[in-house]
Lab assay of single mutants.
Amino acid sequence: VDNKFNKEQQNAFYEILHLPNLNEEQRNAFIQSLKDDPSQSANLLAEAKKLNDAQA
């Protein structure tokens, strides 16, 4: 993981990586967004979790 991520951002990265119901395309999009703007990690994680739950 890129060293410019802080602890919260790293946690978001790993959580998104391991959400079971996202397809690869969705997962990659969230990860790319996280890399583009790490400050949005909490929002991105919340969105990813919502999508993950919706696809459960």
Rank of each mutant, 00 (worst) to 15 (best):
Q32E: 14
A56G: 15
K50L: 13
D2T: 03
L17E: 09
I16C: 01
Q32Y: 08
L19N: 01
A54V: 10
A12S: 05
L34T: 03
D2E: 04
I31R: 02
D53H: 11
A48C: 09
Q10K: 06
L34I: 13
Q32D: 14
L45W: 03
E25S: 09
Q10I: 12
N43E: 05
L51K: 10
N11G: 13
D2M: 09
N11D: 10
D53M: 12
N43C: 04
E25A: 13
S41P: 03
S33A: 15
N21S: 10
Q26I: 06
L45H: 02
H18S: 13
L44T: 12
L22T: 00
N21K: 12
A46R: 05
L17K: 12
A56I: 13
A29V: 08
E25N: 15
A46G: 07
L34K: 00
E8P: 03
N43A: 09
A54I: 15
D53E: 13
A29E: 06
N11I: 14
S39H: 15
Q55K: 02
A46K: 15
N6C: 08
L44Y: 05
E8A: 01
P38V: 08
Y14D: 09
P38G: 09
A42Q: 11
A42S: 06
A48D: 00
H18T: 13
Q55S: 14
K50H: 05
N6L: 02
L44W: 10
V1S: 13
L19E: 00
L51M: 11
S39A: 10
D53A: 04
D53C: 07
Q32N: 11
D36G: 06
Q26M: 06
K49H: 13
A54L: 15
Q40G: 07
L17F: 05
L17V: 07
K4F: 07
A54P: 09
Q9H: 03
F13H: 11
Q40I: 14
A48L: 02
L22A: 00
N6G: 04
F5S: 01
D36I: 13
E15N: 07
Q32F: 07
L22Y: 00
N52H: 02
A48G: 02
R27N: 02
A12Q: 03
N21R: 05
Q10C: 07
I31T: 09
A29L: 03
E15C: 15
N28E: 10
L22V: 07
E25V: 06
E25R: 08
F13T: 08
E47V: 13
A42P: 11
P20A: 03
L22R: 00
D37E: 13
Q9S: 02
N52S: 06
D2I: 05
L45E: 04
I31S: 08
L34C: 08
E47F: 09
R27T: 10
A42I: 10
L44F: 09
Y14A: 06
S41I: 14
N21Y: 06
V1K: 10
L19R: 00
L17I: 05
Q40E: 13
L34Y: 04
S41Y: 14
Q40M: 11
L19S: 02
L34W: 06
A54G: 13
A56W: 14
A56Y: 12
S39L: 07
L44Q: 11
K35C: 06
D53I: 10
K49Q: 08
L51S: 07
A12Y: 03
Q26V: 03
S39T: 07
N21E: 04
K7S: 14
A46W: 11
N3V: 05
P20Y: 06
H18V: 08
K50G: 14
I16T: 01
H18Y: 07
P38F: 04
V1F: 02
Q10E: 11
Q9F: 08
A29C: 14
N52D: 07
A12I: 14
V1M: 13
S41K: 02
S33V: 09
A29G: 11
A29M: 14
Y14K: 12
L44K: 05
Q26R: 02
L22Q: 00
D37A: 10
A56L: 12
D37P: 00
N28D: 11
R27H: 08
E15F: 01
L17Y: 13
D2Y: 02
Q32A: 12
S33E: 08
E8K: 01
K35W: 07
K4H: 14
A54C: 12
K49I: 08
E25Y: 13
L45Q: 06
D37C: 03
S41R: 03
L22I: 12
I31Q: 10
D36V: 02
D53Y: 01
N43G: 03
Q55P: 08
N52I: 02
N28R: 11
D53K: 13
A42F: 11
S33F: 15
Q10P: 02
N3K: 02
Y14I: 10
A12H: 11
Q40H: 11
E47Q: 13
A48P: 00
D2S: 10
K49F: 07
